[in-house]
Design a binder for these strands. Structure first.
Lengths: 266, 266
DNA sequence: CGACGTATTGAGTTCATTCAATGAAAGTGG
DNA sequence: CCACTTTCATTGAATGAACTCAATACGTCG
């Protein structure tokens, strides 16, 4: 589970399915390149899965089999309560792990659904656990991956507990840009793979609010919106949405699209 | 980090500070009783810390030294953003671990503050890591502890993202009762160690809302409130606050304390 | 006791929601 | 390929849940 979904996979499918051929290796195993563990992992991490759009990698309640690394595409993670209410807890991109929440309890506590046609590297948890025994660096890596997920969750908790709607959207977009490989491209152009409803759920808001806030940002010249394509034209203004709130009240104009066609400072 | 704070520590301080003498051992090391690892842990987990009320176990940004298990008392975990806004992310009770969020990055990302005079068992992360090498069950245990924290966070995310104020409070109280050792006692009496402001932050609400909701619940005969003492007199009504919302709108009366002096069904 | 931090309560406001209607886009099947 | 249906997205007007501001009570500790 990683922070936010987006755009192009950083690399194409590996030639033979070997980890060492895969462009994602720096993500999956950053600390262990060239180490023998990588080759051991390759043996164990043999199985690949492809899931088409709206398909499910696993459902909440399924027995924990494998942890998965997103190889291409993107997914959303959702949890459902007893009453059937659903909540998106995150979006995952190539190189990021899903399934680690299942280690305690032996069951996946969440659903993982493909937002587009996607593929995954699977590794049986039991195998991974065994591999960890002999490999301190691999074990540390696992610890760090899990710990990073906890840290990520804290960020989300902070957002949901302390931020208003515009701040949440700004956070979402900024995170998106930061994680987007193509953010180096001129223009910070994003192609969202999830629908508005998913964003709404993730941000703890309603679909209508998402539309309204995007429209407001757009009117203020901070972004350009065209369906699921979003072009961030003024990063600093987005950052200021966050920075200003802690103290000041002010914000982007709510009803009228007056003023603010360009931010004052920049 | 565990779910909710509360009341009596399950057991008193161990005689000599040995893990095997500690009443919390079934919490800390459930799968490993009688195993040699426990004795190894005792050697490593030598250091104890006592923190008085409002004192800090560690601050956000401090270098990761030790993971801590709450031995007695209770703490809150908070995160602070760049603007200084603070958010309570959880309350931890005896037997529960704090600090695991720090493994990735090597710095504690959060503050841990004692809600009352408290004591802790500390274990150096480096030592723990080394110990894990030789001990598959211990390693699995660590994985599970971290994974459990992730699952807990998901619950909080769900609450903040999908529930209204009354539901959040009901969730909070129910969780409290469930985790409270004295819940076996007649009456489900809770003695909260945190202040209203902490609850408010944790639930993503304002202090005033906390007061109002408690008053509402109290007027409805669901709980009795006396400062930080709360007596849950009708568990099922609390559960229904959660169950009913998914579909139906209705709730406890907002302004007037009319009707509902006893719940209809029970 | 007075003084400070904490908790409750009331009145008015606001932000996000609900409800409803329209538009755009994407599947489906003849 | 085009009508058809369905899903998804936007926008407006009205409602409401939680907020802000402010005043009062409670409690604890000098």
């Amino acid at each position: 589970m990683a922070q936010l979904a987006l755009v192009k996979p950083p690399a194409d499918a590996p030639a033979r399915g070997e980890c060492s051929d895969c462009g994602l290796i720096t993500w999956c195993l950053p600390a262990m390149l060239d180490s023998p563990e990588v080759h051991q992992l390759e043996r164990v991490m043999r199985h690949r899965r492809a899931i088409s759009r709206n398909g499910s990698l696993f459902h909440a309640g399924d027995a924990l089999g494998s942890l998965y690394i997103v190889h291409s595409g993107s997914v959303k993670t959702t949890i459902v309560d007893d009453n059937g209410r659903e909540q998106v807890t995150g979006f995952s991109l190539p190189g990021e792990i899903v399934g680690i929440e299942a280690i305690d309890g032996g069951k996946y506590p969440c659903n993982v659904t493909a937002l587009e046609d996607s593929s995954f590297c699977g590794i049986h948890y039991a195998d991974l656990n065994r591999l960890c025994q002999g490999s301190p660096p691999l074990q540390s890596h696992i610890h760090r991956v899990m710990s990073r997920e906890i840290t990520r969750d804290y960020g989300l908790i902070f957002m949901l507990g302390s931020m208003d709607a515009e701040e949440r959207m700004a956070t979402f977009l900024l995170n998106l840009v930061k994680r987007c490989p193509s953010s180096a491209d001129a223009g910070m152009r994003l192609r969202l793979t999830m629908k508005r409803q998913d964003i709404a759920s993730y941000l703890g808001l309603r679909v209508e609010s998402i539309s309204r806030i995007l429209a407001r940002f757009s009117a203020a010249g901070v972004i350009e919106v065209c369906g699921r394509e979003i072009n961030v034209t003024n990063m600093q203004a987005l950052e200021h949405v966050l920075a200003d709130r802690g103290k000041t009240a002010s914000s982007l104009p709510r009803k009228p699209a007056i003023s603010w066609t360009r931010p004052v400072i920049f």
